[in-house]
Design a protein around this nucleic acid. Structure first.
Lengths: 121, 121
DNA sequence: CCAAGGCATAAGGATATGCTAATATGCTAA
DNA sequence: TTAGCATATTAGCATATCCTTATGCCTTGG
């Protein structure tokens, strides 16, 4: 059924949503970071993330006060290829490098995502 | 700019339009054939074809009384890859095999597309 | 030239989509 | 427990999208 495939293309067919995916391709990020970087409101970000989660492209995990999102490691092969064709915005990549949650969202102490096998700096 | 990429994904993000692309991937077809096969009106087919033409994915050429469309041979590499990931509907492929313009559209005499290096049967 | 059919375009309507503002919910830290 | 912030959800709105009907244009064959 072409409708299923069309829906997958449609999922990537929005600039904001596609940008979020590319950002998460660089590194995990929490909602407040994305909302700070993107030119849309926090609810808009949440809604996009919900769609991406329901489509099985991202997963969420809590870290301190924030909810981080990451690209699912087992994203369908073809979708991963499609995303690989899209170049990452250097500005976005730089922003992610130069900021961390504590800087952007102003909360308790400072902490970044440390989900799997990483040692705290 | 992600908007340009999103627009390309959006172009494939409609079941009817995607189906047309997959049909043209099998062989060239004229508007009346597509309108006969697809569950939408002839103007709807025309409008989809116009979008595909404007996006540079297809070209048209006249043959007798009909306007045939074909996939552009120089479609952007990445889009060709994306389309390759989508399986062709066997039913559609069969329909294209079992029908030709004269059968479907009922016009003067019989004739199929004979665009490049082919000899008339 | 005329008639007939293929095709394109225009107009209108129904639905989908993406956003914001307002609000609810949930954690965290004290 | 309570205050404060992060996030999710809801409602409403503006726009985009896709369809149909109506219509005009063009080509073909007589």
């Amino acid at each position: 059924m072409y409708e299923d495939w069309a829906e997958q293309f449609r999922l990537l067919g929005d600039a904001t949503r596609l940008r979020i995916l590319m950002l998460l391709h660089v590194r995990d990020a929490c909602v407040c970071e994305l909302a700070a970087l993107l030119p849309v409101s926090q609810p808009a970000v949440s809604q996009h993330l919900r769609r991406l989660k329901q489509a099985g492209l991202v997963v969420e995990y809590r870290q301190k006060a924030w909810v981080f999102y990451r690209l699912r490691p087992d994203v369908p092969e073809h979708i991963r290829r499609w995303l690989t064709d899209v170049p990452v915005d250097p500005g976005d990549a730089g922003w992610l490098r130069d900021h961390h949650v504590g800087t952007v969202c102003a909360v308790p102490d400072s902490a970044g995502p440390m989900p799997v096998g990483q040692t705290q700096t």
